[in-house]
Design a protein around this nucleic acid. Structure first.
Length: 436
DNA sequence: TCTGGGGTCCTAGGACCC
DNA sequence: TCTGGGGTCCTAGGACCC
């Protein structure tokens, strides 16, 4: 019988991170310390590309994936099902001009992007740009399958991989055999080739000294491209880019920067660190200065625990708390049940239960309440969330309702805390009981 | 007939404790 | 009677990302 593992042999719990380079390596016959090489990998038009594997006859045509599914599903149901998917005539597929509803686009194929269509764009707006574009619903099961498959290919080659969503990962090349050759290009090529063989899908990879630059680099040559960026490329390749290209500078920050006449990353780098801090706050200002100079020492994190889970839904039409009370109540209960099911399936419990609603005019309100004991029970969630709902104004029409669980713990850890906590409360009341 | 459904992190005020 | 900081937790909102 194998000896019981000691603590040091147990798998890492929580976040496992890679530290800087340690060992000597040989590059082109020269012994040297490996330089930090971080890759960002982005699947090309992921959702749409997965659909194209099923319907190859649509290749090369403008196509979008996403949206409020109903209408599209109806149209697709009219298609002959089963084995001959590839033989369905193109004319049989639904078009954007026939689309009705509130959805947004998840992915557009490259031909569709030529028309100015992009992710997160409303379906109705996209339909005006390219009414003849084909439109298909998202097949989440299929997407997850392909997502798992490509990530497995990556980790088999380079184990230090950080998951950034269904279609994106960071990879630490630094200590991987071949990871230093041609600045990472050789390994990137191998990964691209292996993913294509395993899935039939292409991806774009950027390799750079850190995550910040790798993320920008992966966009340089899309689709199916590889870009290698070194520290010395900062001025020529990074500084000319608009500030928006920095992961973390969004529309608001960009607008404010532009208000100060700062449009490119180079112009941001030219500003005084103290000036940035004075105008954007201590944390954001200092961070902006660092990223403008291409500096980022965040590690590649291979494992992390979820902080919250939620379920939300946008109604087909705006609902009113009083007039549509019954319908709203049904949806609310279903959301709570789905959330409870998610928590239980994944083995989590939580203490902070909250609701979110979006009004017809897109304003958002949230309320939450922290309860004594961890739970993943649908009825408890429904009850506490119901209390939260009473604290929010409900006069105006509602567009969206959501339920959220925060302050998560693994179910088994929470059970242990409950036991110890129970014993503790008998001995002496104390508020400062350590959580973990 | 604009604008989905998940998430993370940050800020800021107030309660409460030491 | 008037005055502190530091720390944590809770709550609400907002920016941002995929």
């Amino acid at each position: 019988m194998a000896p019981a593992p000691c603590a040091a042999q147990l798998p890492f719990h929580g976040s496992r991170t890679l530290k800087g380079p340690a060992d000597k390596a040989t590059i082109d016959g020269v012994s040297t310390v490996p330089i930090r090489r971080i890759a960002h990998l982005d699947m090309d038009a992921f959702f749409a590309s997965v659909e194209l594997l099923r319907y190859p006859q649509l290749k090369g045509l403008p196509m979008v994936i996403g949206g409020g599914r109903r209408k599209v599903d109806e149209a697709l149901r009219g298609l002959p099902a089963g084995s001959a998917l590839a033989d369905i005539p193109i004319e049989a597929f639904p078009r954007l001009k026939d689309y009705v509803g509130r959805g947004v686009i998840t992915t557009a194929t490259y031909p569709a992007r030529q028309f100015g269509i992009g992710s997160a764009m409303g379906m109705m707006k996209a339909a005006k740009l390219c009414p003849q574009a084909l439109v298909l619903p998202v097949d989440f099961e299929e997407i997850r399958k392909f997502s798992r498959r490509f990530k497995q290919v990556v980790t088999e080659i380079a184990p230090l991989m950080e998951d950034r969503g269904v279609d994106e990962v960071y990879i630490d090349f630094t200590e991987v055999p071949g990871g230093q050759r041609e600045g990472g290009r050789v390994l990137a090529r191998l990964i691209q080739k292996s993913i294509l063989e395993a899935t039939g899908l292409t991806c774009s990879i950027g390799v750079a000294p850190n995550k910040l630059l790798a993320k920008m680099a992966s966009e340089f040559d899309k689709p199916n491209g590889i870009s290698i960026v070194y520290e010395r490329d900062l001025e020529a390749r990074i500084w000319p880019l608009p500030c928006r290209k920095v992961n973390g500078i969004g529309p608001k920050a960009d607008e404010k920067l532009q208000g100060h006449g700062i449009r490119t990353i180079g112009e941001l780098a030219a500003r005084d660190r103290d000036w940035l801090i004075a105008n954007f706050g201590k944390s954001t200002g200092a961070w902006m200065h660092e990223v403008a100079w291409g500096r980022d020492d965040r590690p590649v994190v291979t494992e992390s625990e979820p902080v919250s889970m939620s379920r939300e839904t946008t109604f087909e039409r705006d609902l009113h708390a009083v007039r549509d009370r019954a319908e709203l109540g049904t949806i609310f209960t279903q959301l709570c049940e789905k959330l409870a099911d998610d928590l239980q399936r994944k083995g989590y419990v939580g203490k902070t239960i909250g609701i979110k609603l979006r009004y017809g005019d897109f304003r958002i309100a949230t309320r939450d309440q922290t309860i004594e004991a961890f739970t993943a029970d649908a009825r408890t969630i429904r009850q506490v969330a119901g209390q939260c709902l009473k604290r929010v104004p409900l006069e105006q029409p509602l567009r969206l309702l959501g339920v959220r669980m925060g302050a998560l713990a693994r179910a088994e850890d929470a059970a242990a805390i409950a036991t110890v906590g129970g014993a503790r409360s008998v001995e002496a009341p104390s508020r400062s009981f350590p959580l973990f």
